[in-house]
Nucleic acid binder design. Structure first.
Lengths: 350, 350
DNA sequence: AAATCTCTCTAAACCGGTTTGAACGTTCTG
DNA sequence: CAGAACGTTCAAACCGGTTTAGAGAGATTT
């Protein structure tokens, strides 16, 4: 492995000049620069990144820590986000360091990342309502960006979709179609976006004078399996009238509802309406479901790309308040939503 | 940020002693060690990781580069692998650096990772038959482990499933059930495991005197969508008799086949048999498909955990030939496979 | 009591870059 | 032609750790 000093010696120059030549500083003679670049190419010189990091104080890396228990990584949503993030970062020559830690050590690992100087910034995903990771990062004054947000007036950089507007629109659509018994299959209760969606749902129903019983709202992992389980339970009518419509936080849950409907011999679109939020997972297209699914749509991958850009800005000192973006999710109506069945199959509608 | 020198000064000790105390070297007095540990705790001292890396020559990180075009990251299989890998590495206090690069720059990025000393080892995933990344790493003498293998007698460390045995077993099962027209929905042709599976499939059919026309074998992205498209095409009978059984490289493709069967009004398990390889994606359980899917099963996540362990061994100098593991995939028969329809609906069977 | 051995600790070199302050030769200005 | 200004290069300090060689104190041996 060639070092800078060797390269300089080889050229009869000082390390300082060679370093400047390679890094494009203006005070190097043009012929010298060319000589240096040629020689470095020929000797296959690559700067030792650790030495560089130590000298500059910049690592060229950003970090992400996830709970090994919750295991976001197996969540296809999270993963598509990661894809956008890492390509976005790669465009800016930044690497992403990912690390798994058990829940009870999570904050300690954040502390380590922050104060050991191994990364220039952190990405926080899936914030909880009172997120201690965010509190820690703010306290330490460390640059970070968040996918999602914990509230309306926060002091940090974030990218989020307008969960409230999306779920309000979806709920209104169902109500307009005549549905009064609407179930919400939501994600895990401690997540911020889950709360935001739920609040919008409750608000939209209450505004129209509709009461939704608690048993119509579930909090669970957003998977096909859980979607099926909750939908089956609710459709059984065991604890009271069954819902005529389902609002799902993920297309995976919607898949489960579709399966539950098939099992209960209900036709989706007529007997039962379904709307889901579509994060646009490339391997699971709701337009190809049977029937095609009505969704609120916002590509989660785009969020990754956007956050990469914001992370870079944040590292270079941009005011976090200037780095807050919220995008709206489009409501796309397809075949899975239809007018509420007029003859309540359970007597709920008269 | 406290530095080692400051901490040493504060304690009235030399940096050398403090460094030794913190790193557990034996030549430090017991009372001194305790004083040092206490003070470092109190002053919240965290060693600067870049300085540490420069001094030791070890980074405590391993790298992974993926093609931004192929975009492995959106592949749920790859992601579950990543989950296993990063938790396995975290257990050994190693971080994972991930980086995206366009196809034509891929090798350059490998070179950079290798010769800039930013990682101690590399993980290679989804090898191609003649993989230039592997060739480069061998040439450079850099530690790496591979998920999959390019051939039978290779000189590097790998973890792989026995694709040949699995697909031979699956094919044999279909033949035993009377199927003669069997289609293979495979992955992208340049991937090593795709070749291995296909070879086993061809061998198993040829051995039993069955000829499979080329149009029964497809190579494509392993997604629901492509599975649906290829199955629909083959089932249409447009280019000749339709297959009575499908062998899929992924459960996602099987989902597509199930949808195609429904569209063609065929009952899976009687009119049509399906077997898929199941990488055990937590959000997509083939035992819950309708009908439950017959699979060859091997958790891809386990591969990640195993490779983390092997990577660590490899970095510490273990002979790569001692780090080669191949596991067998279990054939699990469920409801999606049944006897071939005796009355060929297309005249193929007499 | 001198010599040897341990134990514990220190000074200084080192890892491989970047960056500051100064010096050099050349050209411009007065 | 002296002096200033400029463009280019260099020596040395620096980033913050680890590690080698060696020093000093006390215990053990002779």
């Amino acid at each position: 492995m060639t070092t800078l000093r060797e390269l300089a010696q080889h050229l009869g120059l000082s390390p300082a000049t060679v370093s400047r030549a390679l890094n494009g500083f203006p005070e190097v003679g043009e012929k010298t620069r060319i000589r240096v670049l040629e020689a470095s190419e020929r000797l296959r010189y690559k700067a030792n990144s650790n030495a560089k990091r130590l000298a500059t104080g910049k690592s060229g890396m950003v970090g992400m820590i996830f709970r090994s228990s919750r295991n976001l990584l197996v969540d296809p949503h999270f993963v598509d986000f990661l894809a956008g993030l890492s390509t976005g970062l790669a465009d800016r020559e930044i690497d992403l360091v990912i690390h798994a830690a058990p829940q009870h050590e999570l904050l300690a690992h954040y502390e380590r990342f922050v104060s050991s100087g191994s990364v220039d910034g952190m990405i926080v995903s899936a914030p909880e309502l009172n997120d201690r990771r965010i509190a820690t990062l703010i306290e330490r004054g460390f640059p970070f960006v968040v996918h999602g947000r914990t509230g309306d007036n926060v002091g940090y950089a974030y990218f989020d979709i307008d969960n409230g507007a999306a779920f309000k629109a979806a709920t209104s659509l169902l109500i307009d179609l005549g549905h009064r018994c609407i179930a919400l299959l939501n994600g895990e209760a401690d997540l911020a976006f889950v709360q935001q969606r739920e609040e919008a749902f409750r608000q939209a129903t209450t505004d129209r004078g509709i009461h939704i019983p608690e048993r119509f709202i579930s909090h669970d992992v957003m998977s096909e399996e859980q979607g099926f389980a909750h939908a089956t339970e609710m459709l059984s009518g065991r604890r009271g009238p069954a819902p005529t419509a389902f609002l799902c936080s993920s297309t995976l849950q919607a898949l489960g509802v579709i399966r539950a409907a098939a099992t209960a011999e209900l036709t989706v679109g007529t007997d039962l309406s379904i709307i889901a939020h579509d994060d646009v997972l490339p391997h699971l297209r709701p337009e190809h479901f049977n029937p095609a699914l009505t969704v609120t749509r916002s590509p989660i991958r785009m969020a990754g790309v956007a956050l990469a850009e914001m992370m870079v800005a944040r590292i270079s000192g941009v005011d976090p308040l200037k780095l807050q973006r919220m995008v709206t999710a489009d409501l796309i109506v397809r075949a899975s939503t239809g007018a509420a069945p007029t003859t309540g199959r359970d007597g709920w509608l008269h």
